[in-house]
């Protein structure tokens, strides 16, 4: 996969997100520090102004929560609390103790966000704009090892994957069937033909809500170089059945990404599903 064909816009997400993450404790606790320094009775500056650090940090934290795939409702609502504590008129005084407690809470929430709610998407862009790891590396591998796939087959692969991701299993099976008919017996990529066969078979079984059969189509051990997930032992039939489908879907995704550039926007909408298959 050449970089010039990739819709990936951004290369170094950390240069933007890490400073933002650091800004949360730095701004909030920095504001507290200044509030402590200027908290004397003869101080010319009202300590309430330093609560601005906590307010800005709250908005940054909410942004960091927003750009994650899983949303943390607590972090998302911190700007509201910052407004209630530091801006809205109330009976309790804004002093450095309140600011300190608030700043510590924000820092704890940031740690919780990073530990429990996954990594942020690059620059806040969704998975609909850029291909992420490990799928990106896998697509690059397939583009090197299976570069003889035609754009027509790539398009079929993209549509079959998209239909499967949408839960339209019969349509996915129909597309796989059409692809196999077009490729005939002279498929340049036998792995692609096997992947379509697996999609057709398992798509029809899912459509009928049928149990996994005793005998089913699966990849051979010679195909393992181009498969995303390693093949389980042959005696674990349920695992073999499920991994066959995962590998077939991921191979179709990578083949479509490599061979059919016009389908990349469609493939990016299904990236979340492909990443899930990888992670399982």
């Amino acid at each position: 996969m050449s970089d010039k064909n990739s819709p990936c816009i951004l290369q170094k997400p950390d240069t933007f997100l890490h400073p933002l993450e650091l800004a949360v404790p730095v701004l909030s606790l920095g504001g507290v520090l200044l509030a402590m320094l200027f908290s004397g009775p003869e101080s010319p500056i009202d300590v309430r102004y330093f609560a601005a650090g906590c307010i800005i940090s709250s908005f940054i934290l909410a942004y960091l929560a927003w750009i994650r795939p899983r949303k943390d409702i607590v972090a998302l609502t911190t700007p509201i609390y910052s407004f209630l504590f530091f801006v809205a008129p109330s009976d309790f005084a804004v002093n450095f103790v309140l600011e300190l407690l608030y700043a510590v809470s924000l820092t704890i929430l940031l740690i919780r966000l990073k530990m429990r709610f996954g990594a942020a998407t690059e620059y806040g862009l969704s998975r609909e704009k850029t291909l992420e790891e490990p799928l990106k590396t896998y697509c690059e591998t397939i583009s090197r090892q299976a570069n003889d796939i035609s754009p027509g087959s790539g398009h079929y692969a993209a549509v079959a994957f998209a239909r499967f991701a949408q839960g339209d299993y019969r349509l996915a099976a129909d597309v796989a069937d059409a692809a196999l008919a077009e490729m005939g017996n002279n498929s340049p990529s036998p792995v692609l033909a096997t992947a379509f066969s697996i999609i057709r078979e398992q798509g029809l079984l899912l459509e009928e809500s049928a149990e996994s059969p005793a005998e089913f189509i699966e990849f051979s051990s010679q195909d393992s170089d181009v498969l995303a997930r390693s093949l389980p032992p042959a005696n674990k039939r349920n695992d073999c059945y499920e991994v066959s489908l995962d590998n077939a879907l991921l191979f179709l995704y990578a083949a479509a990404w490599t061979a059919s550039l016009k389908d990349r926007p469609l493939l990016l909408t299904g990236q979340g599903f492909a990443q899930k298959l990888f992670a399982s």
């Binding site: 991701a165 299993y169 809500s209 499920e242 995962d246 979340g272």
Partner: peptide, 19 residues
């Protein structure tokens, strides 16, 4: 509803009945 494995449920299936 179609009987599916949990892993197959994804954001592209929003609105679909499943079992």
């Amino acid at each position: 509803a179609k009987t599916v494995r949990v892993k197959l449920i994804n954001e592209n299936m929003i609105g679909k009945p499943v079992r």
